[in-house]
């Protein structure tokens, strides 16, 4: 589904990623591990072009999204992202946080259809009756788009047991609640893949479990996930593949058993001896 070739990223003269190659298939759960400052997060942020890659290609659903000419927003709708600092919108309530992007996308599609219909009407003026093109059928309205986004958001909130917080502002929530809402906010867009950027690193220890549990449920449902994490136990349990990044390169990759139990690269051996 995603094919990354020779991905490079430099900040000024600092070379953070020096050619990363990886292919991610539908349904894979990839855990990205590695020492701090090795480029794990940068790698993840390049996948949806939050950081513009300086070289290489990222082919997502057949389109190279690293190409600056591509409209990245359309593709980002299908690539969810969960941040270390949650980043819920502070000026929106919980349910508005979840509804915002789906409503925007729905309205965008509606505007596009209406525009197309205006075009058809105009061109029909110059055509004989039998050549006239029929108008597109528009069943959605602004209200129906909002209502269906709300229904979906409520369903998601119910699922994580936070429906009673729907009208609260994020400042009233605990870190674990915020992160779970951030995850369902990404889910509301029905993404094909979700990128997790150290989703539990900013949480109090007692809240890590609830977030990992939700992620595990998603994994079991077959969601494609790329997870930058320091939770080695979680990586071992959930990941279908673990990749070890150091010095801006993938130094080793394999199943959790291969990577954790019989590491080959000395850097990985050294890293694991420190974190396990």
């Amino acid at each position: 589904m995603i094919k990354i070739e020779n991905l490079k990223k430099s900040f000024g003269t600092l070379e953070v990623l020096r050619g990363i190659n990886i292919e991610i298939a539908e349904g894979e759960k990839i855990a990205v591990i590695g020492p701090s400052g090795c480029g794990k997060s940068t790698f993840l942020r390049c996948i949806n072009c939050m950081e513009d890659p300086t070289g290489g290609s990222i082919v997502f659903e057949g389109v190279d999204i690293a190409d600056p000419k591509v409209d990245i927003n359309i593709h980002r709708e299908k690539i969810g992202m969960v941040f270390q600092q949650f980043n819920l919108f502070n000026n929106k309530t919980v349910i508005e946080n979840i509804m915002l992007a789906p409503v925007y996308v729905g309205m965008k599609a509606l505007r596009k259809k209406k525009k197309e219909n205006r075009k058809i009407k105009l061109s029909n003026l110059f055509k004989r009756a039998e050549d006239k093109r029929p108008l597109l059928e528009i069943t959605e309205t602004k209200e129906s788009i909002k209502a269906s986004a709300r229904a979906r958001a409520e369903e998601l909130l119910l699922r994580i047991g936070l429906l009673d917080k729907a009208d609260e502002y994020p400042s009233r929530l605990s870190g674990g609640q915020k992160q779970r809402i951030a995850i369902v906010r990404a889910l509301a867009m029905n993404p094909r893949v979700i990128l997790f950027d150290e989703p539990t690193s900013a949480l109090d220890p007692e809240m890590v479990g609830e977030v990992l549990d939700l992620m595990k449920t998603l994994a079991d449902e077959g969601m494609t996930m790329v997870i930058v994490t320091h939770e080695m136990a979680f990586a071992r349990e959930v990941a279908s593949r673990v990749i070890f990044i150091a010095d801006g390169q993938i130094l080793e990759e394999g199943t959790p058993a291969e990577v954790f139990d019989s590491p080959k690269h000395p850097r990985l051996q050294d890293f694991l001896s420190k974190v396990l």
Partner: peptide, 26 residues
């Protein structure tokens, strides 16, 4: 916080929409 912009952009909102709906109100 830059994270607010990033969250908006990561959801596929164009920068204009992120600015108007998220950043400017704050």
């Amino acid at each position: 916080d830059i994270g607010q912009t990033e969250a908006g952009r990561a959801l596929g909102l164009p920068s204009r929409v992120t600015m108007l709906k998220i950043v400017i109100p704050q």
